[in-house]
Design a protein around this nucleic acid. Structure first.
Lengths: 242, 242
DNA sequence: CGAGCCAGTTTTGCATACAATCTCCTCCCG
DNA sequence: CGGGAGGAGATTGTATGCAAAACTGGCTCG
């Protein structure tokens, strides 16, 4: 191992340095610490994390395969920037994939996964109800909401029991955008999302795959519509070069 | 560059060693030179291609993200082996994605892409008609058929103009299986495929997205059914361990 | 005779070194 | 004063070295 971890065996590297770099870069991109178009220079990142370039490079290529960053030959990685059309397309793709996942979960899901799903839906609802609390910083509330939302969706995807689909959804759910969308939601919109979560979960539990799929699709497309308004207002064209 | 290229500037490395390794490993996997479960040892492969391990490793991770190989921590890469259920699931996923692509192509496709599509469909048909020729080795015929088939499908995907979808289909179309499926097709089944190609192309050209999507889906699911019979007969359970 | 364990080998995962390419800035010439 | 050649610095792409982890085989001990 390198120097730099003086004492403390609690610094687990159990998943390897590449996975660690992946997690941290991903989080930075998701939360917007690196904005669209920003270059991700291997040397700088590796110094930032006290690693060599090798695992950083590996992490970047993995993020590329998930669509979060783009590579250009001899120019390295940069955070992907998307036009409004790209966002629209991506959300429709996601809607179809998660709709499929919901259908499968209706057929294959276990009781346990249904319980987890319900639990996440209820927690989401509680967090929405408490969304007026001034005790917590807005960003922290959004982050908690985002985590719970992800947990709900991921539970369904896992219940579908389709490895390839799971892998693809990791690349189709543009987490930076979901984060941003949740941030811009009004309370009533959050409540509507919670409603869709409940309805979808209910359909899945009853094994009504087609309805579950349609609800999920509609849920995601509603989110898309709201996000598109946001993008139109704030970014104008939403196009960033380089 | 390394030694080993004494004379001749024609040895273009224009795309980089990693891309070269990617192409060659991929081809080996697709055509079955490496079978499911075979380990892909970095050292051996790099010697085989006269490269260092670095680009080979990068190529392997890329193939992993496309689902052709699997990695296990500290155990490296192996060709992915799939159960019959996995194959069934994968084909349904592909059917949905390509169905979406066909819908989009109906709306967004240019005249030029329609022409390319028709041309590929016609070539496929001609190759099917000539599939009795004894002048050509069976494997070469299948390879040509596979190439043309890929060209048809990829033209539609390209016409959809959805970058992310394109990327995903690269990982959802399990080329080894498609190759194998075509290999097992009877002449009548090939003719039916050609028929579906024509019908789908027609629907796309007329802008009837829903029909195009359904035809594409049915086309792919028919291929799946045929392949599943094959797998059931030849592999028994189709499960291979380590 | 079988289970467990220890050493040797293989292979991965990470670090580092080096060469090729790109970028950008300067400087010279028209 | 503008534009292009060229060189310095920055950054990627590839090669290689090394330590840790996993597999293999044989040995001991029950």
């Amino acid at each position: 191992m390198t120097s730099g971890e003086p004492a403390g065996p609690e610094h687990r590297v159990s998943e390897g340095h590449a996975a660690l770099a992946y997690d941290r870069i991903r989080q930075a991109v998701v939360e917007g610490a690196y904005g669209p178009g920003d270059r991700l220079v291997e040397q700088r990142i590796s110094e930032e994390f006290s690693l060599s370039r090798t695992p950083v490079r590996e992490a970047l290529r993995r993020l590329e395969s998930e669509g979060l960053v783009v590579f250009r030959r001899n120019r390295g990685a940069a955070v992907r920037s998307m036009s409004a059309e790209d966002v629209r397309d991506l959300y429709e793709l996601r809607a179809r994939l998660e709709s499929y996942a919901a259908e499968l979960a209706s057929v294959r899901g276990s009781i346990g996964s249904c319980d987890t799903m319900d639990e996440a839906a209820e927690q989401f609802e509680r967090q929405v109800d408490r969304s007026d609390d001034v005790g917590i910083a807005r960003d922290d509330r959004v982050r908690a909401l985002s985590d719970t939302n992800n947990r709900f969706h991921q539970t369904i995807v896992a219940a579908a029991g389709h490895e390839r689909l799971t892998q693809m959804l990791a690349g189709a759910v543009d987490v930076p955008l979901v984060f941003r969308a949740l941030r811009g939601f009004e309370r009533s919109e959050l409540q509507r999302s919670a409603e869709f979560h409940r309805m979808t979960a209910h359909a899945i539990r009853r094994g009504e795959g087609t309805r579950a799929g349609r609800l999920m699709s509609e849920h995601i497309l509603l989110g898309r519509d709201r996000l598109m308004e946001d993008l139109d207002q704030n970014d104008g064209a939403g196009r960033e070069r380089e």
